[in-house]
């Protein structure tokens, strides 16, 4: 009987320790995952905007995966051309889970206008800001998914030489999005150059 009592006590002890660790660790883990050094997220109601920094290596890998015959591409040239830009992926997500764009607009003309904006005009609302300088977005590529997914992805690039080498000498810099089209004001996605400027 005493033997069972000991086993019972040990079990309670182990379960309690695991329970405590689970609570402490899970919260820590969630905080890390929600806002990492490379992904900055902002949520307003059902709309979540996240901006992910893409390193040159990551972009190179993605581009090579997209090409059917990877050997036919000069990796050196591609790498050089990618190094000229700081690349990001802007993800707009409808947290309700339905289509992303139809959540914002109601009529077909409004939908067309939003597509037009995301494809061509959004670039004018994006800036890379350091303490002393502001650089306009060099290109924005809207990946169309015909609103079948609850999110919309936009690839962004900022021409590095536009800011010289100063970008990595700044402690912090931000990507600024004037989100008037989504009923919001200016949104700053701030990155830490120690973590992100590794190229």
């Amino acid at each position: 009987m005493k033997k069972y009592k000991n086993i019972y006590m040990y079990s309670i002890g182990i379960v309690s320790i695991l329970f405590g660790l689970f609570f402490l660790q899970s919260e820590k883990y969630r905080n890390v995952m929600e806002d990492s050094e490379y992904i900055k997220t902002k949520t307003f109601g059902n709309l979540e905007l996240s901006l992910e920094y893409k390193s040159t290596a990551e972009m190179l890998n993605e581009q090579l995966n997209d090409v059917e015959d990877g050997n036919s591409v000069s990796k050196g040239e591609l790498k050089e051309s990618l190094e000229d830009y700081m690349s990001f992926k802007l993800k707009l997500e409808n947290l309700k889970g339905n289509g992303m764009l139809k959540n914002i607009v109601k009529t077909v003309p409004e939908y067309q206008a939003l597509i037009q904006y995301l494809s061509f005009d959004m670039q004018k609302d994006l800036f890379l800001c350091t303490e002393n300088d502001t650089l306009q977005c060099s290109f924005a590529h809207f990946e169309r998914n015909f609103d079948l997914a609850p999110y919309a992805n936009i690839g962004l690039g900022f021409y590095r030489t536009g800011l010289g080498e100063s970008i990595c000498q700044n402690e912090n810099w931000s990507v600024l999005l004037h989100a008037d089209r989504f009923g919001l004001g200016p949104l700053y996605f701030r990155f830490d150059s120690d973590k992100v400027c590794d190229n």
Binding site: M9, G13, S16, G20, F23
Partner: peptide, 24 residues
């Protein structure tokens, strides 16, 4: 020896409960 182990376990359980109480 058994008494020592039981005492040790009791202390651990008590400290876990106190930690839990502080946390909550």
């Amino acid at each position: 020896m058994k008494t020592k182990i039981q005492l040790f376990i009791t202390v651990i359980i008590l400290s876990i409960f106190s930690m839990g109480f502080i946390y909550l």
